[in-house]
Amino acid sequence: MSLIKAEGLYAGYGGVDILRGTRLRVEADEIVVIVGPNGAGKSTAMKALFGLVPIREGQVEYMGEVITNRPAEQMASRGIAYVPQESNVFPSLSVLENLELGAYAMPGDLGPRLEKVFEIFPKLRERRQQAAGLMSGGERQMVAMGRALMIDPHLLMLDEPTAGLSPRLIDETIARIQEVNQLGIGVLMVEQNARQALAIANRGYVLATGENRYEDSGPALLANPEVAEMFLGG
Rank of each mutant, 00 (worst) to 15 (best):
A6K: 02
E7Y: 07
G8R: 09
A11I: 06
G14R: 08
R20H: 13
G21C: 05
R25E: 14
R25Q: 14
A28I: 00
V32I: 07
V35M: 15
P37V: 03
P37A: 14
N38R: 07
N38G: 09
T44S: 11
A45I: 09
K47E: 13
L49F: 12
G51E: 11
L52V: 12
V53H: 15
R56T: 03
E57N: 09
G58E: 12
M63V: 01
G64L: 13
V66C: 12
R70N: 12
A72P: 12
E73T: 02
Q74A: 10
M75Q: 15
M75P: 06
I80L: 11
I80F: 11
A81S: 06
P84N: 06
Q85Y: 08
N88C: 03
P91C: 13
S92H: 10
N98L: 11
A103W: 04
M106E: 06
G111S: 14
G111T: 15
P112A: 13
E115T: 14
V117H: 07
V117D: 12
I120P: 00
P122F: 14
K123H: 04
L124V: 15
R125Q: 13
R127N: 02
G133L: 00
G133T: 06
G146T: 09
A148L: 06
M150L: 05
D152Y: 00
D152F: 00
P153R: 05
P153G: 02
L155M: 00
D159S: 06
T162E: 08
L165T: 12
S166G: 11
S166I: 04
S166D: 02
P167W: 08
L169I: 09
D171I: 00
D171N: 14
A175T: 08
I177P: 01
I177E: 08
I185Y: 00
M189D: 03
E191A: 00
N193V: 07
N202L: 02
A208S: 07
T209N: 08
E211Y: 09
N212W: 13
E215R: 08
D216K: 02
P219I: 12
P219R: 03
P219Q: 08
L221P: 00
L222G: 12
A223L: 05
P225N: 04
M230Y: 02
L232R: 09
